[in-house]
């Protein structure tokens, strides 16, 4: 567990197995929430997380795969696709400045 300074976040990757369904939906809501904050939000399959990701949001069941796919990149696991508190924390930290754990 590390504490991340949200001001260092420029690219958020939302990862799921196929990059087809849930990650698309979550990425779109996070992107909308962070519009005007200069943060890029992309969705990808968990096996092809881009190397320049600053943080990865992924389902708890995929967190280990995300960590091995993107070594060194902080991973924030979530359990529900809409309204998960862990995701809300990251969004709030980026919006207002602050930190979150990953």
């Amino acid at each position: 567990m590390a504490t991340i300074d949200a001001s260092t976040i420029k690219k958020i990757v939302v990862a799921c197995d196929a990059g087809m369904g849930s990650s698309v939906m979550l990425a779109s809501t996070v992107r909308k929430q962070l519009k005007s904050h200069g943060v890029e939000v992309v969705h990808t399959p968990v096996n092809s997380i881009p190397a320049d990701a600053d943080v990865v949001l992924t389902h708890a069941g995929l967190a280990d795969r995300a960590r091995s796919s993107a070594p060194g990149v902080p991973v924030v696991p979530f359990r529900v696709f809409i309204g998960d508190p862990a995701v809300a924390k990251v969004v709030e930290a980026v919006k207002k400045g602050g930190t979150f754990d990953a």
Binding site: G21, V24, M25, L26, S28, T29, K32, I82, G83
Partner: peptide, 9 residues
């Protein structure tokens, strides 16, 4: 899907 996400919120 983006629209669906908005509906779910």
């Amino acid at each position: 899907l983006s629209e669906l996400a908005q509906i779910l919120l």
